[in-house]
Every structure is written in structure tokens, then in C-alpha cells.
Design a protein around this nucleic acid. Structure first.
Lengths: 247, 247
DNA sequence: CGTCTAGTTGATTCGCCTCAAGTGTTGTGG
DNA sequence: CCACAACACTTGAGGCGAATCAACTAGACG
């Protein structure tokens, strides 16, 4: 369903029925990506613009000696190649679990960005939201403790996944290993492990086998100094469970 | 001179003469900001879109207890309010030295983003470049040592300022205190001080009174693991001095 | 069953932080 | 012209958070 893209673009404000339909028609053939597959690599020239329809992925840079920094997690509805549309890609994108990808022809995209102001604005907003998330990550890596950082990331994923209907009962799929978490937060795997244990011990969450369950949402937010406003999702922490297809 | 904006937008690719003129005519009245003045604060609603014509500034978030994270440095030609055009601002912007600001009416901006593909694309590229810089900062804060991070930031500023003609002889104005550097890099002021001393001791640079001079550009790049490609400036490290007005 | 990967644990080390003074410079008012 | 703030920078001492090194366990898989 391409309408995941619609769900994404309309998180900030509704599109008209015609526009929404135009968005759905954007997406051509979809294809699958296997877990761990590199969907894009550093230096790739501009190509088609792909959308993550199902599954999760991450952007990352890996240094020559193996150190890796994860830059963003992508969830259904996110646009993979927005950076690559205008500049050469300066990082890689790898699938976490199995992914389904949609593809938008460049000509169609260009046409809409020129001719459909509402869609163009929606694309701008998603791009600025990615920047807003990056800024919050910088605050975390620069100024927050490991404990806070981990809590904050989990809060963020709950709200983001919730906004596209992938959270129910404070539970969601987040198929990352502790090593992924470490690389996203700038920590060692050992320290991430111990800190995760502390979060579990305090009863804030459970996290195993790629499934995250928040057990004490207020406490987790406080631990992470989490304030959802930077996500610009009109204050939509998961109050009631937004049960959704195949959550 | 509004043409600083043109210099910025055309760093990636030329605009036609007519487009360049349209860009220059975008900017209405300019005004001055005093050193340390907050030019925008967290939570500000969308307003006019301002451009930094002269001087430098920085984006930052300050936490309730006083910890501060600097998110970006803005240099002449940079657009201050790009994040605020589409979403409420989630951070503050403060002048470093004295600044001159130009202002673009929203209606004019919207019209150009719809009607002038080349300008619209140039805006997209600047936005994606800001994201690219943010990503590189994440790599630094997550995975690089204090020594590397400082070196990297200085390399970045030299290349960015060089791309708008504000570097001559590997020397540029960068009016930040050690505290600013610390807040940008996620370090304590004490440690920044000691690490700066190391960089000076090794003869890589001099940095005092807001003026940066790179004494050993190859060594500084190596120390910072600096690879300019993420800046997408067509590999323009400052070879020959690009002397410029009032540099 | 061996092998692989993810997670866990302990011991040790170190990069960076915090606290606490002290220096130098600038600006300001008496 | 001299206190004296105010600020940026510097230096020393001590401590903690997180890294590193090194096993070891447990489940998944062929």
C-alpha cells in the first residue's frame, strides 16, 4: 500500500483527495529488500526516489576502521532517497528487517514538486522533520547520558511509529540489535547492554527479539528528557492504542 | 549585498542571469543584529524568511538546567528560517558577532518555490546540505575523539567559509569562544581548552580572538578525518586564497 | 552437534568531566 | 587613574562514565 506515504505526508496537515490520490499513483513497481541488504551506498549518484512501504531501515556512515554511526532510522512511509535526489548520497542505507520499497520516477516527482504546492510543502516538511530529529540526536549525543539517550530514542520511535499506526498498547516492532542501538547513540555495545538492563530493572520497558514495549511511559519520557514537540506531530504520544494492520 | 545568498545557492550549480537577479530582488529591507542577540527563539511561529548577509550565527538548544548544544553555525548566505518556514522553530538562533539580516517575504518565496524550478532546487540543495553537515556532526559526536572533532570542525568552517570567499591564506574569522566550541562538539570547556592547546602545540593551527588560522592543512584534515565530499562543494578546499571584500 | 550471532558479565583502563583556583584583558564608574 | 567587575582562558587535582579486553552463555541454524 502506497498510502503509507500518504500517512507520512499528511501527518502535518491533510492533502486534498485529489492530491492524496496523486501521491498514491506516484509509486510504481514495488520490490522487496532482504534483512541487512544495502539499499543505497555512499557515493551513489542520483537515481529513482524510493519510499519505504513496509519494514524498517537505517542510514549510516561507516569509517575506514570499522567504527559506525547510525544517522537515522527509517520507518514505513519515509522517503529513502530525498538526500540523493538533490546531491550525491553521502551515507549508506541498510534494511533492518525485510523491507518493501516503492519507487517514484524522477520526472513524476519533479512535476509534482513544481505543480502541486501542497505536496511540495509536505515534502519540505518531511525533510525538515528529518533535520529536526537529527538535531535532537545531536543534543543527545552531545549532552545526555547513556541512560537518557537510550530512553529518548525509544520514546522517539514509539511516537514516530505511533504516528503511522504501528504502535499498539505501547508496543512496537523495532528490529535492532544492541549493536545497532550503540551505533545510533554513540556508545559501546557493552555499555548499551548494561544501561538497557538498568532501564529494564527500573521497570521502564522491555526490549527483546526486536520488540519494544514501554511499561512506564511517563517515567521513560522523564528518563529521556523527552519532549515530543520537535517531532511536530501535533502532540500525538500514543494515548489509545492505534491498532493497525499487521502491527 | 544580497548576492551572498546567490553565492550560497550557486555553490552547487549556476543559476541563469534572470534567476540570479530574481534571487537578489528577493531580499527586502535589511537590518542589523547585535552580538549575542537572539534572532529567533524556540517555539517562534512561522514568520518572514531571513537570510544572513553578513556576520555569523548559530542554532542551538538549551536544556532547562543550562546544558547547551550548538546545532549549526550559520555563515553569510545561509538561510536562517528555512526550518521555520514549514514547521514551528524547535531551536533558537543567536548572533555570534554583529550580523546583517535580509528578509524575504513569504509570498515571494512561495511563488519562487513553485514557479522557478532552478531556485526551488537550489533551496532543496541548501537544505539537504544542512542535513549532510548535521550527519557529519553526529559521526563526530558519536564516534570521534575530542581531538578529531575539533580538527574536523575547523576544517569544515574553512571549507564552508572558503566557498563564499571568506577565507584567505587559510585564515578566517570565526568569532566563537571556547565555550561555543565545547557546546558545538559536546565537550566541557576545560577539555576543549586542553585539546586546543594540543592542536596548537602540534603546529596545526592558531586560534585566538575569534580568528582561525590553519597552519598545516593536510595534517589538520588527517587529524579530523576530514573528507570534504559531504559538503558537496565540488572539492573546493582553499587552494589559492580567495581574497574577498572585508574578509 | 559444531558454528554463528546476540547478549551477558567481570576486570581494568582511560577519556573526559567536575570542582576549584588563578591569570589576563577589557570595560566601567568613582 | 585606579578599583573592580565581567569574561575568556588556563591550570591542577580528583573522580566518574563509558571504553576496552576477555570470557562465557544461550538460542538459531545447517
Amino acid at each position: 500500500m502506497g498510502s503509507r506515504l500518504n500517512a507520512n505526508l499528511q501527518r502535518f496537515g491533510a492533502l486534498s483527495a485529489a492530491e492524496a490520490q496523486a501521491v498514491d499513483e506516484l509509486i510504481g513497481a514495488s520490490r522487496l529488500a532482504a534483512p541487512g541488504e544495502d539499499m543505497a551506498a555512499e557515493g551513489d549518484p542520483a537515481g529513482p526516489c524510493r519510499v519505504l512501504i513496509e519494514g524498517q531501515a537505517f542510514r549510516h556512515k561507516t569509517l575506514p576502521d570499522g567504527r559506525r554511526q547510525i544517522l537515522a532510522f527509517l520507518i514505513p512511509g519515509d522517503i529513502i532517497d530525498l538526500p540523493g535526489v538533490f546531491l550525491n548520497l553521502d551515507h549508506s542505507v541498510t534494511a533492518l528487517g525485510a523491507c518493501e520499497l516503492g519507487s517514484i520516477p524522477r520526472t513524476r516527482l519533479d512535476a509534482l514538486m513544481q505543480g502541486a504546492p501542497a505536496i511540495s510543502h509536505a515534502l519540505w516538511r518531511t525533510s525538515q522533520m528529518e533535520l529536526a530529529i537529527a538535531r535532537e540526536w545531536m543534543v543527545g549525543m552531545g549532552r545526555r547520558s547513556a541512560y537518557s539517550r537510550i530512553a529518548h530514542l525509544f520514546c522517539e520511535m514509539i511516537v514516530r511509529l505511533g504516528s503511522v499506526g504501528l504502535v499498539s498498547g505501547y508496543r512496537c516492532t523495532f528490529p535492532v540489535t544492541q549493536q545497532h542501538l550503540s551505533d545510533a547513540l554513540g556508545l559501546s555495545a557493552v555499555h548499551t547492554n548494561r544501561t538497557l538492563q538498568a532501564l529494564r530493572r527500573e521497570g521502564l520497558l522491555s526490549f527483546q527479539a526486536g520488540e519494544l514495549t514501554v511499561l512506564d511511559w511517563p517515567a521513560l519520557q522523564e528518563a529521556g528528557e523527552f519532549d515530543h514537540t520537535y517531532l511536530h506531530l501535533a502532540g500525538r504520544p500514543p494515548r489509545q492504542s492505534l491498532t493497525s494492520a499487521r502491527a
